[in-house]
Write a protein that binds this DNA or RNA. Structure first.
Length: 268
DNA sequence: ACTGTAACCTGCAGGC
DNA sequence: TGCCTGCAGGTTACAG
């Protein structure tokens, strides 16, 4: 599901709801991806942050509860009257009697309770690039990062190294907006500058619309996002390019469906 | 150290 | 209706 805008939307709603609450009980699916969720018992939420697609809740006594939503992960307040949901992978009871739960049909998500900043067990987080909406995401360094590899530019964006938080939807959106072919292997400085601008714009707009709901994603409040009604490229293969009218094409890069405009996104 | 590929899971839509 | 195939917001392990 969830790329940076979806995770940020969840973070903003989640933080005021759980800050100050103490976890008094917890259960988790036995998979090592979720099994450490109960390690948070007796800890209190101090804040809820985010890095890229990772939610990082600060706990007291120097611990962090990290949640990655994978493809189908949903965080929500448990409904005590709801029938048992077999896809709930973790459940934390809070000291006000409410409960937070993590539902994840495909189990691509991940939960970790770790000493603060200890990310060696999460290699992508450990080596994560700069936050795209911060000053640390800077055009010159971004260009240098892209030039450091000869992999396709879309692959690099999705690697989370040159910039954090971009996944399949927003990679296609940003590259379309920047007019750069997703399989381009050597980006010029003007191209990387356009991608830099486009990444920021696309993510900022998506956050303002509470994210993109294709199927599973819901905000913490349980609503869908609305950015799916504003996608310019992702998922539009076979339809006319909104800029030039050419038929958008579909290919596969990095085992991921990729949409691009053969006219606006030339290879160099 | 880097790169490409398979693997991890389940549900759903579409074709026959 | 049922079966089969392909596809889906991601990360990680592993082989070369």
């Amino acid at each position: 599901m969830p790329e940076l805008p979806e995770v940020e939307t969840i973070r903003r709603q989640l933080e005021p709801r759980i800050t100050g609450r103490t976890i008094v009980a917890a259960t988790a699916h036995p998979s090592p991806k979720f099994a450490t969720a109960p390690d948070a018992i007796t800890h209190r939420f101090e804040s809820v942050g985010r890095r890229g697609k990772y939610l990082i809740a600060r706990l007291d006594r120097d611990r962090e509860l990290i949640v990655h939503l994978g493809m189908t992960g949903v965080l929500r307040i448990a409904d005590p009257d709801a029938p048992t949901d077999p896809y709930v992978r973790a459940h934390w009871t809070l000291d006000d009697g409410s409960a937070l739960e993590f539902r994840d049909v495909r189990r691509f998500g991940r939960i970790a309770v770790l000493p603060a900043g200890e990310y060696r067990s999460l290699p992508t987080l450990h080596a994560l690039g700069p936050e795209p909406l911060s000053d640390e995401f800077e055009p010159r360094a971004f260009h240098a990062a892209l030039r450091a590899s000869t992999r396709p530019v879309k692959t690099q964006l999705m690697s989370q190294r040159p910039v954090a938080g971009v996944g399949n939807i927003y990679a296609d959106e940003a590259l379309w907006r920047a007019g750069v072919h997703p399989a381009a292997r050597r980006t010029t400085r003007p191209q990387s500058d356009r991608i830099h601008t486009a990444v920021r714009a696309v993510l900022t707009e998506a956050i303002a619309r509470n994210g993109t709901t294709l199927r599973d994603y819901r905000t913490f409040d349980g609503d869908t996002g609305t950015n799916q009604h504003h996608l310019e490229c992702y998922g539009r293969a076979g339809s006319p390019c909104l800029r030039c009218g050419s038929e958008l094409r579909r290919s596969v890069i990095d085992q991921r469906g990729t949409t691009w405009c053969p006219q606006c996104q030339r290879r160099r």
